[in-house]
Structures are given as C-alpha cells and as structure tokens.
C-alpha cells in the first residue's frame, strides 16, 4: 500500500470528527427522539384500547377512511391536497379489501415510519451536523494551511473528505436503524419482519389512483429499500454540505445555508404545485418515500426515477464544483 494512502487520509478525517464527539451528540439526540416517539406511539395504542376496547386494526382503518372522506366532503380543501386525500382513501380501502394491516404493530413498522418521516428533515440535519465543518473548520482553525502544504494533492485530500462523508452517511443510517429498532422494540415488540406490506401504488398517466402495479413485499425487504432510499438522500445532502463547506469558509453560515435548503423543500412542495418547474430543484425531491408508499407525488410528473436522477445530478454538480474550487483557489 502506497503511503501517503487514501486510507490513511480517511483515518485522519475520521479521527478529527471522532475527537469532536459529533457522532455521540447525534446518537444521543436520536435516542431521545426515538424514545419520545415510541412513548407517544404507546400512549396512542393505550388510548385506543380504552376507547374502543379493542385494538382491531380493521376497525381503526375503517374509521380513518371515514374521517378522510368527511374531510373531503367539506368544501374548503385545496385541489392539490384533495388529490392526496383521495389517494389515501383508496389506498386504505385497498389494504382493507386485501386484509393486510398497513401498520402491523412492532418495531419494524416503527422503523418504517421513522425512516419515511426522517428522510426529508431529521437525517439530513444529522449529516449536516456531522459534516458541515469538514472543510470550513480547517479554515476556521487555520489548519488548512498545514493540510494543503503537505505532499498530497488537493484532489486526494478532498476525495478522502468526500469518502468520509459517505462513510458517516452509512454509519448514521446504521445507527438510526439500530436505535429505532432497539428502543421501539421494548414497547412495541420485536417481530413483524415478515409482515406483508403493499407497494407500487401510483398515479396513472391520467393522474388518477392506480393499483395496476401493486404487489406485496415482506417487511424486511420493504425496509431494506426504504433504508436504501434514506441512504441515498442523506449521502446527497452530505455531498452538497461538503460543497458548501468548501465554498463558504464560515461554518455557521454554511450550516445556515444548508438548513435553508432543507427546510425550503417541504415548504415549496406544499406551496408550489402550481410552479411546475420547481420539481427540478433538489430539495423538492427528497421525499423519496412517497413513491414507495404510493402517495400522490408533490408535483405532477414526478416519479421515483425522475427524483433519483435529479438528486444524482445535483449531487454530482455540487461535487464537481467542490473539487474545482478546492483544487484551484488560493488559500489565505
């Protein structure tokens, strides 16, 4: 193995992040969050049991369908939202007709919901906490001068930093999966890995609900896909955060920019289904789980492959710009 090797450089980056105890902070927040959600979930089940004297999911689902239909009946529902609600009614009806419980009680279902909800905001936020100062921190400390005057090409240094970003993305996803399973399992039970779940609902080309491609998957397989999508989004956010860290020398400013990017995504989706071309923005595409779950896409014409391509394109552009900036610019 040649020395200086890429592995050595990655070890350096891991040591720096490790000593700043960032992963510990993120893991602690995760444990607190998951504990809170688990408790909330537990209270909800208790309440149901008290009110209905049963925890039959069929009764539950039927009730939810009726509730949603009531909402649809009221006049002041926006058109975009109406479509989402109609999808939900039809989907739930489909579950009911096929006698499949969409939220089979247990830790795997908790994980499914946590990853689905966490991918757009919480998990990207964590990777930003971990990675925001990976380059700008070297500027703040002045260590960039020592780092870049050693006999290693700048290209290789940034490559090591990017690979560290991907490594921490994987670690973060793994820890999230572990924590959400371990903690929720205590209350909700550990099984449910093989419970069937439906996927493949989609909007037909005419924009209406379609069940043509629906198929059943065991939970573990569905979860694997879900976690994969989460990894993809978090890795993309990490890559964009790396670019911001290269370009914006001040870490606090960098975090602010990344937060704005993240938060404006859901905001744009809820406001902007009339602004059609906003679907080409990267942050509008982070909700990959809507495709898996078969909800109506935020903007017409968005599909899973479309979103994957958009995210990949933005991440690659960010990476290219980061490498250009890092290798070409003067360091003061």
């Amino acid at each position: 193995m040649s020395n200086p090797s890429l592995i050595g450089l990655i070890r350096n980056e891991v040591l720096k992040i490790h000593r700043k105890r960032r992963l510990l902070v993120v893991s602690t927040i995760l444990v607190v969050l998951v504990s809170m959600f688990t408790y909330a979930n537990y209270r909800q089940i208790e309440k149901q049991r008290e009110e209905q004297g049963t925890i039959d999911w069929r009764v539950d689902l039927q009730q939810e369908i009726i509730d949603t239909q009531n909402r649809l009946a009221s006049a002041n529902v926006q058109d975009e939202f109406r479509q989402i609600l109609e999808f939900r009614v039809q989907q739930n009806q489909y579950y009911l007709d096929n006698d499949i419980n969409p939220s089979y009680p247990g830790a795997p279902t908790f994980m499914r919901i946590f990853f689905s909800q966490g991918t757009t905001l919480v998990l990207p936020l964590f990777i930003i906490v971990l990675m925001a100062d990976i380059v700008s921190g070297e500027h703040n400390d002045g260590t960039i001068k020592t780092l870049l005057s050693r006999p290693v090409r700048r290209f290789k240094i940034l490559l090591a930093k990017w690979m560290t970003t991907l490594l921490y993305t994987s670690l973060l996803i793994f820890i999230t999966a572990f924590v959400s399973y371990a903690i929720s399992g205590i209350v909700l039970g550990w099984d449910g890995w093989t419970a069937p779940i439906l996927t493949g609902f989609q909007a037909s080309p005419t924009g209406t609900f379609s069940t043509d491609f629906v198929h059943t998957l065991p939970m573990w397989q569905y979860l694997l896909m879900s976690v994969g999508l989460a990894w993809f989004v978090v890795a993309a956010v990490g890559t964009i955060a790396l670019m911001v860290s290269v370009v914006v020398k001040n870490t606090a400013t960098g975090i602010g920019i990344m937060m704005a990017v993240l938060i404006s995504g859901p905001l744009l989706t809820s406001l902007g289904s009339n602004w059609d071309s906003s679907k080409y923005l990267v942050n509008v595409n982070f909700g990959l789980h809507t495709y898996l779950e078969g909800q109506a896409p935020p903007i017409d014409g968005m599909t899973l492959p479309f979103s994957l391509v958009i995210i990949t394109a933005w991440a690659l552009a960010a990476l290219g710009f980061a490498f250009y900036h890092f290798t070409q610019k003067d360091v003061y």
Partner: peptide, 12 residues
Amino acid sequence: ENLEVFARMLPD
C-alpha cells in the same frame, strides 16, 4: 495525534 495525522500524509 497531530504528528501522527501529518505523518500519514508523508511517505514512510
């Protein structure tokens, strides 16, 4: 640790 970090950026 500082010296080890920079040593890993040097040959041998």
